Amino acid sequence: MRAWTVCDPKAGTLTQSLGVARHFDPEPHRVLLDGRLAKWRKGPLSPYWRRTGAPEPEILVSCGSFATRHVAAIAAACRNRPFTVHLQPVDDGLGDRFDLVFAARHDLRAIPSPPANYREMLGAPHQLSRAMLEARRTAARARWAPSGGPVVAVLVGGPTKAYRYDDATLTRLQAAIEGFAKEGRTVLASPSRRTPPALFDWLLGVRSDRILVWDRSGENPYLDFVAAADAFLVTKDSVTMPSEAATTGRPVFVFDLAGIPGEKFDEFEWFHDDLSRTLGLTRPFEGRIYDYAYEPPDESRRIAAVIRNEMARRGDLRP
């Protein structure tokens, strides 16, 4: 099946779109956006009118607020209307243009009466799978933790509207990382694309013989770090990082940050409480790492199955 993804070039939105679309097409065509499409760019004035390219998509998977008008324009320009899926609540009046809209549990709670085309999703879909990570685990551990022993992956994001990294937070984070090393664990620390220079420089300064921080030179070892880990410490500012870590089925501990009261803070706090208390996927970090069991989610595959079922019900599922 021919799939297109439509989103801005941010890693977070792109990986969600690709994670779902690749269950339909191993190499989806990517439409990367640099802004919203003006309302007046419809019909023959649309940049996609009669220029969608061949072959046309059978399914469009989009993410991000920029994407909705672009998807509507692409679908209108196609000779055969593609099945349209958006991975985020639609708040610009175009929600009825999509066959399915997937809203994260922490977003859906704020929608009293979700439209009929809305479906629930857990956290953020992504491109990682347990099978993929297990296949590279042995080589990843041999490369990044050759001394053997337990491995902790520390995944660090950056300041947001909900959280900040103040001095007290950095002191606690440093103590946690150094504590893992003192316990004989190998620490593989990975900054994200959102990690600002000052926080990145601070993280580099925490290195020791048992602490390895990716210095952003060479190929990003993030997949290897996740594959090699026996447990995770993930900063609280991310939805994607704990979603990806939980794919492994290994313990995921969420590191608390200094909160900034407001709507975003409440949203993130609800998300993490849901992951921990309701779903049992993560645990708040309280100074120690320990084992616990849970059923690892495979959200991109589950979402793809929901889409296939809906397409089959409508008669839109083609070989």
Score class of each variant (00 low, 15 high):
Ala76Lys: 00
Ser243Gln: 06
Arg216Asp: 12
Val239Pro: 10
Pro284Val: 09
Met311Gly: 05
Pro284Gln: 04
Pro26Trp: 05
Ala245Gly: 02
Arg51Thr: 03
Leu128Val: 13
Pro57Lys: 02
Ser46Glu: 01
Thr278Cys: 06
Tyr294Ile: 05
Gly184Tyr: 01
Lys10Tyr: 06
Gly179Pro: 02
Ile74Pro: 07
Thr186Asp: 00
Leu204Gly: 10
Asp167Asn: 13
Ala104His: 01
Ala124His: 13
Leu33Ser: 05
Leu199Trp: 13
Glu286Val: 11
Met311Tyr: 02
Pro197Leu: 07
Thr278Met: 09
Arg308Val: 11
Pro197Asp: 12
Pro112His: 12
Pro221Tyr: 00
Glu286Ile: 10
Pro44Cys: 01
Phe232Ala: 01
Gly315Ile: 03
Ile59Ser: 10
Arg164Cys: 14
Arg109Cys: 05
Pro146Leu: 08
Pro196Asp: 12
Pro115Ser: 12
Glu267Trp: 08
Ala124Gly: 04
Pro114Asn: 10
Gly35Trp: 04
Thr169Asp: 15
Ala11Cys: 03
Leu173Tyr: 00
Thr160Asp: 04
Arg81Glu: 07
Arg302Val: 05
Val61Met: 08
Leu87Trp: 03
Phe180Cys: 09
Ser129Pro: 13
Ser208Leu: 02
Val234Ile: 15
Val252Ile: 11
Met1Lys: 04
Pro191Phe: 05
Arg130Lys: 14
Arg105Gly: 14
Ala304Tyr: 07
Arg2Gln: 12
Arg2Asp: 11
Pro261Phe: 02
Val31Asn: 07
Ile177Arg: 00
Ala67Asp: 03
His29Asp: 08
Thr84Leu: 08
Ile307Arg: 07
Arg172Asp: 08
Cys7Met: 08
Gly149Tyr: 00
Asp209Ile: 03
Pro146Glu: 05
Leu33Met: 06
His70Asn: 09
Lys42Ala: 01
Glu134Ile: 11
Ala176Asp: 00
Pro28Glu: 00
Asp167Ala: 15
Glu269Ser: 14
Val6Gly: 03
Pro297Ser: 14
Pro251Ile: 11
Ser113His: 13
Ser17Ala: 15
Gly12Leu: 04
Arg172Asn: 09
Phe83His: 08
Ile74Thr: 06
Ala305Glu: 15
Leu204Gln: 12
Arg119His: 06
Leu108Lys: 04
Ala245Tyr: 00
Ile111Tyr: 05
Gly123Val: 14
Gly64Glu: 02
Ile289Asn: 02
Ile260Lys: 13
Lys161Val: 07
Pro9Leu: 12
Val239Gln: 11
Pro150Trp: 01
Val234Arg: 02
Ser192His: 02
Val71Tyr: 09
Asp266Ile: 09
Asn220Glu: 09
Gly12Thr: 01
Ser113Asp: 15
Arg81Trp: 01
Cys78Lys: 08
Pro146Val: 04
